[in-house]
Simulated scan of single mutants.
Amino acid sequence: MVTGASAGVGRAAARAFGARGDRVALLARGRTGLTAVADEVRSAGGKALVVPADVSDAKAVEAAAEQIEAELGPIDVWVNNAFAGIFAPFPEITPDEFRRVTEVTYLGCVFGTRAALRRMLPRDHGTIVQVGSALAYRGIPLQSAYCGAKHAIQGFNESLRCELLHHGSRVRTTMVQLPAVNTPQFDWVISRLPGRSRPVAPVHQPETAARAVVHAAAHPRRREYWTGGSTAATLLVNAVAPGLLDRYLARHVYTRQWDEQGTGYSFGNLWSPADGTGGPDAGAHGRFDEEARKRSAQAWLSRQRNRLAVAAALGMVVAAGRRRTGTARR
């Protein structure tokens, strides 16, 4: 089950699950994008089920879960990826807009997790993947609503993980913290910036994020995965010197979130899908293909951390053995 599956990271992840031959349920509001990604999942070798729904509606999410299990069988993996955002200084965001971003991004994750647990806990089996961001730890200017919601998901997921561990449950939850990704969101979100909204470089392709999501679903014992060198660097610096990072972001990142040559004041998809019935299919990628990175060495290292740790330990043992042998000979 992948929420926010009609575009961006959700769409790339759905295709990646399909390539494994999985049965993939696709949830989003936009029917055009859902129909297109369903075809892509089938072409990749999987089975697809389109489930149009708004994740901020708890009853709709529960009904979607019932439909999925009736048509595809038990849900083994639930990926909470759907979100909404707005690019604007905080005083320019209305209360209704802030509430809507929170309901979609945070409560959508909560409602999806609840629907998944209602089915997974009795079976004592299943994995929930929360798609997060470096912004789940480190807020940046002009994205206060989105950063707040991602911080909330982080805290919620940690609390839930502790509860599952306390009860000895074999249901797993993990979180994938992503860098800036080349998705259509930057043309879809509401923007009140002077220019066209854009991600803070470096930018990665959604397929990199999708690989991390699929890996996390298969290896959920890790509490979280960091994807992208910028994510790792941001989180590490924030842990050591958050005040210094405050000043850096205020000085350098505030103005790096729009294109000076672009057109600002986008009305976005906050209240209705940009790819609703008859609307255009945006695909997985945004308009930043020329600068987006297709691979992330850091993401690969993160996925291989356990193997690398074992290799390093073996190397230390071998080196120690050689030193002892050398000493004995002398």
Score class of each variant (00 low, 15 high):
2 V>Q: 13
6 S>C: 09
9 V>P: 02
12 A>W: 07
14 A>H: 10
16 A>I: 04
18 G>Q: 07
20 R>Q: 15
21 G>C: 14
22 D>L: 00
22 D>W: 00
23 R>T: 02
34 L>V: 05
35 T>V: 06
36 A>S: 08
38 A>S: 12
40 E>D: 15
47 K>Q: 09
49 L>F: 06
51 V>S: 09
51 V>H: 07
56 S>V: 05
59 K>R: 07
60 A>W: 05
69 E>L: 09
72 L>V: 09
72 L>S: 03
74 P>M: 02
75 I>V: 15
75 I>Q: 00
76 D>T: 12
78 W>P: 01
81 N>P: 13
84 A>R: 12
85 G>I: 03
89 P>S: 10
98 F>M: 11
101 V>Q: 04
101 V>R: 06
102 T>V: 08
108 G>R: 04
108 G>Y: 02
108 G>T: 03
112 G>P: 00
117 L>V: 01
118 R>C: 12
130 Q>A: 05
136 A>E: 04
137 Y>Q: 11
139 G>W: 07
152 A>L: 10
153 I>F: 08
159 S>K: 03
163 E>R: 11
165 L>D: 11
166 H>S: 13
170 R>C: 00
172 R>Y: 13
173 T>A: 03
173 T>I: 14
180 A>C: 10
181 V>K: 04
183 T>D: 00
184 P>C: 05
185 Q>P: 09
186 F>N: 05
189 V>P: 06
192 R>P: 02
196 R>A: 06
199 P>Y: 02
200 V>M: 11
201 A>F: 14
203 V>Q: 15
204 H>C: 10
206 P>W: 07
206 P>L: 09
207 E>G: 07
210 A>N: 12
212 A>N: 10
216 A>Y: 04
216 A>T: 08
218 A>S: 13
220 P>A: 03
222 R>V: 11
227 T>H: 01
228 G>N: 12
233 A>W: 09
233 A>E: 12
233 A>P: 04
237 V>H: 00
237 V>T: 14
242 P>A: 09
243 G>C: 01
244 L>W: 15
245 L>Y: 05
246 D>I: 09
248 Y>E: 11
249 L>H: 00
251 R>S: 14
251 R>Y: 08
253 V>H: 10
255 T>H: 10
258 W>E: 02
260 E>W: 01
261 Q>G: 13
263 T>Y: 05
264 G>H: 05
266 S>D: 01
267 F>T: 14
273 P>I: 04
274 A>P: 01
274 A>G: 13
274 A>E: 00
280 P>E: 03
281 D>A: 10
285 H>P: 06
286 G>F: 11
298 Q>G: 05
298 Q>M: 15
299 A>T: 15
303 R>Y: 07
307 R>Y: 06
308 L>G: 12
311 A>V: 09
311 A>Q: 13
312 A>H: 04
317 V>D: 06
318 V>K: 03
322 R>S: 15
329 R>N: 11
